[in-house]
Nucleic acid binder design. Structure first.
Lengths: 194, 194
DNA sequence: AGCAGCCGTAGACGCTGTCTACTCGGCGTG
DNA sequence: CACGCCGAGTAGACAGCGTCTACGGCTGCT
């Protein structure tokens, strides 16, 4: 009464999310999803005219998940903006690490139709949270707030990316993301106030 | 007497490089490369047992190209380390922008066999150049040199990535990479000494 | 001259996404 | 009540892909 009542469309997306989480982005084929959903290979076409549409819907779910986690973090961590920012950054990196396949899919713009499904609009509020926090800790000599936020985001994203690629450990030999995370935060926002 | 004398292996790689540069990563199929090289679809198999092997060889060429550009930059720009570092960063971002498809392929670890072809070893010298320069401008209160270099690299890489994705303009509304580039450099290395 | 080994050909297999023709079932209408 | 329609899912086809295998032909060595 669960899987049956949800409607095929929602079921397909759910199966796709499971699949991308467990097997990675390359495993998410229309036919495999149809198979796991127990329908014929042509069935998804009624709801998702093309593969890209289905992948976009799955990625959307990913952005929603990430947004929810970030909002939860913001709810839980009631402290000075710098601490909240650190928590946000960690949530971002944790998400990338724990849901590697989904994270990968979310930023594979070649696989997604960012226009049609307003995928970008889904990720914008997320950036807004970051930008807001950044504006609060910005020092007068720093770059303008949006640029500063963009640069910090890029840094976090780059860390997630390179860490997923597995090349940073080899290069820096550090305790990994934690060292880099704090280096990035300190660099962009100034040293942690002890 | 040019294309004919190079041997099929080199020709396949060259065709693949052209293809990834002009059409993007997804266009680089074994069969398409074989077609453009004027051989049968099974021919590449003799030199590249699997698709991944061919892609790795192509990516290797990309790393070689990037390395050459960075070295050229280091040769041309004889100045203080900070200026050299800025030039290096710009070379990195310019490469990513000008050779988007190749850049994408180079960091698609899922498509590459980084072990077999010593792909990672090819990119390590590049990081060494960065790390060396970073060590020269590092201030005592900064993170250890390798971490600092890693964080900076991640930042550059993230900028390239997000810029390629097309989401940063929308978010920051800035003149783009230039603002972010300088924000990143200033953040990690301190304000430009003007 | 004859033989061996490399190099490329050609066809098959199962997989993919996409398209199209169809069937089945429930609904509203005459 | 019966009819027809229409949405939803089925099933088969097609071209493309990567991979595998059996085959031919050319080269150069003995």
């Amino acid at each position: 009464m669960d899987a049956d009542e949800k409607g095929l469309r929602a079921r397909l997306v759910a199966v796709g999310v499971d699949l991308v989480l467990s097997e990675g982005q390359s495993a998410v084929s229309l036919r495999e999803i149809a198979r796991r959903a127990g329908v014929s290979h042509g069935a998804p076409r009624r709801y998702f005219p093309t593969h890209v549409d289905l992948l976009s819907a799955i990625a959307r779910e990913g952005f929603a998940d990430l947004t929810a986690r970030v909002e939860a973090t913001m709810r839980d961590v009631e402290a000075d903006p710098r601490t909240r920012l650190t928590a946000l950054a960690r949530t971002y990196l944790d998400f990338a690490a724990a849901h590697r396949g989904m994270f990968e899919l979310m930023f594979r713009h070649d696989l997604l139709d960012s226009g049609r499904l307003r995928l970008r609009e889904t990720s914008l509020p997320l950036f807004a949270v970051l930008a807001d926090l950044v504006a609060q800790v910005r020092r007068p000599t720093d770059a303008p707030a949006p640029v500063l936020a963009g640069a910090l985001w890029a840094n976090l994203h780059g860390i997630a990316q390179l860490w997923a690629w597995g090349s940073l450990p080899l290069a820096t030999g550090a305790t990994e993301d934690d060292a880099l995370l704090h280096a990035a935060l300190d660099a962009h926002l100034g040293p942690t106030p002890t």
